[in-house]
Design a protein around this nucleic acid. Structure first.
Length: 121
RNA sequence: UCAGAGGGUCGGGUGGCCGCGAGGUGCAAACUUCGAGGAAAGUCCGGGCUCCAUUGAAGCAGGAUGCCGGAUAACGUCCGGCGAGGUGGAUGUGAAAAUCUACCUUAGGGAAAGUGCCACAGAGAGUAGACCGCCUUGGUUUCAAGGUAAGGGUGAAAGGGUGUGGUAAGAGCGCACCGCUGGUUUGGCAACAAAGCAGGCAAGGUAAACCCCAUCCGGAGCAAGACCAAAUAGGGAUGGCAUUUGGCGGGCUUUAACGUCGCCAUCCGGGUAGGUCGCUAAAGACGACGGGCAACCGCCGCCUUAGAUGAAUGGUCACCGCUCAGUAAUGAGUACAGAACCCGGCUUAUAGACCCUCUGAUAUA
RNA sequence: CGGGGUGUAGCUCAGUAUGGUCAGAGUUCUCGCCUUGGAAGUGAGAUGUCAGAGGUUCAAACCCUCUUGCCCCGA
């Protein structure tokens, strides 16, 4: 545990629209894994070699502001739990919420996050 | 006790583990305090605040409001009253009308300032009108001329209503009551109400049709705006002189004042990415007392209560509440919904719980 | 956050300036005729809570108010 905390003091965040589009670009070297409760996109960062950045997205289609906020919070909690030891160094991740993200069982959301991260590794 | 209507209040709690944002202390590690709503929503109104150089005066255009009085910073909001309409009850009656009372609703100025519209049907739809009917005269079989708005029929609406006199038949043609209009008196701050007088039936509906009248409104909005500042383009800022004429500068016009377009001197910055401020203590919340029918106001005490910017305020587990189902064990559900400059309202969404008032049913006394 | 537009047959749209006869056109669909059969043509028919609710009016797709869906624009 101490090694992981040494390597990743804090997860960086994707903030601007170009960063999200860079990770989502299918023509480049991005990968993605889709599950019923969430979608994870990953791409190696252009210049930086170490550190992990992540971003969270919830579209208007999945519900009103309360549902979208809840979905993003749950995704953020999943990322905090698993990304530090399952994520690859020097890559960026984007978590996309689906309609079941806010309402589904917490354990299934954790399982599917783990599966998605392992598949992308 | 149950059901319904109206109004008001609240709208889960405790703990463990792991986290987030802001403030404070600290060199740091860390510790500590605080951290969504009644609608934060829709953006439908009204303000504060900021900029538009100045936002002065008059008018036009445009928009909004619209019974009266009050509250308020202001409002299209709120409170009280008036008129109108509806429902229930009582009096009243053969039945009604009418009167009184309780509750609810109400965008409710002006239709004798003017214009427009009133389809279809109907004889006639707004300076009335003769289809049937009724009456008179002529002819006397059909019918023709005239009078007539009582009756029929059409229509959402047929040009006061009921009764009586009158008449060839009728008609406000006369009269009584009701309605209407005008002015008077009384009550009321007023809207308006009541009383009695006069007129003599003219004046249909529609202004959420144009319009008229009264009152109010400059525009844009925190992505306003101010400051620090990579890049890029071009000059920019300050001071002095001149400011006669002219041009430009509010949605438009006129007018008043002003700014700028000119010359000279001095100085060096400029402001996009990014960052900082604006940014939360305010028409503030709570409680007592006093004034007021009330909205609300005054005074005193006490408290400080989010401030993010791809956007914190959480995730998860356990227990307890509450509701429903079930004898029980137990199971299911626990709403609507997330601040983005800040206030006052309106509208819309909302599981469930509690309180007050009224109505009905049942039970008991 | 602020500003604007729009919703009518399964689809694409008229009709709303001035409320009434009027809810209509093209396309689609159904059934005939034509053809050996199909397409095209031709004749007849079907299809609507005028986005929802309330109000004004004798009368509302149209006027007024509120709600809702979709689309566009500004930095």
């Amino acid at each position: 545990m101490s090694e992981t905390t040494q390597t990743f003091h804090k997860l960086g965040r994707l903030r601007t629209r170009p960063e999200f589009l860079f990770v989502a670009n299918r023509n480049g070297r991005s990968k993605y894994a889709a599950h019923p409760t969430l979608i994870v996109q990953m791409r190696k960062h252009a210049t930086r070699e170490t550190g992990i950045n992540c971003g969270f997205t919830a579209t208007k289609k999945i519900g009103n502001a309360v549902v979208r906020n809840r979905a993003k919070r749950r995704l953020r909690e999943c990322a905090r739990s698993y990304l530090s030891h399952l994520g690859q160094d020097g890559h960026d991740y984007v978590f996309i919420a689906r309609q079941t993200t806010a309402t589904c069982d917490w354990q299934t959301l954790c399982d599917q996050t783990q599966k998605a991260l392992l598949r992308l590794k």
